[in-house]
């Protein structure tokens, strides 16, 4: 029952300068992510925000949470968790975007009935435009 494969396992102590460097990077990234909100990059903004968040998360996981020196299985648990959250969100989001046309349809019909046709057409354009802007 001896676990010889773990015998040479030793606990890694993270050097202080690594901790401070990581902390500094996290603060810089926080400032960056707040700053980049002020710049209009269209649909890219959300992905930049998420990308910065992922970088920050990776830094925390690797250094604060010792994953860099840990058993790979521990990191696997984290990665698998994120992958499955991704699967969950991916399918559910794709589906709701797909069926949204049926959800919105009654409202659309209402509008068409209450508006004259020329008025209804720009209404489509403005909603599309304003949503694409942000």
């Amino acid at each position: 029952m001896s676990q010889s494969k773990h015998a040479e396992y030793h606990v890694h102590v993270v050097p202080l300068r690594v901790l401070f460097a990581v902390f500094a990077a996290l603060i810089i990234l926080t400032i960056l992510t707040v700053g980049v909100t002020k710049v209009d990059l269209g649909g890219l903004n959300i992905w930049i925000a998420l990308g910065v968040a992922v970088v920050k998360a990776v830094l925390v996981a690797l250094y604060f949470m010792h994953l860099r020196w840990d058993s790979p299985y521990n990191g696997l648990a984290l990665v698998v968790a994120f992958v499955f959250v991704g699967v969950f969100i991916g399918f559910a989001l794709k589906d709701s975007l797909e069926y949204q046309k049926y959800v919105e349809r009654p409202a659309l019909l209402d509008r068409l009935q209450q508006q004259t046709i020329p008025a209804a057409v720009p209404s489509e354009e403005t909603t599309e435009e304003s949503s694409s802007e942000h």
Binding site: T30, T33, V34, T37, D40, L41, N45, I46, A49, L50, V52, A53, K56, A57, V60, A61, F64, H134
Partner: peptide
């Protein structure tokens, strides 16, 4: 807990 906040912050406060 910190890591989750790292995602919550841009998603809730920094919507563009």
């Amino acid at each position: 807990v910190d890591l989750i906040w790292i995602f919550l912050f841009p998603l809730l406060y920094l919507i563009h």
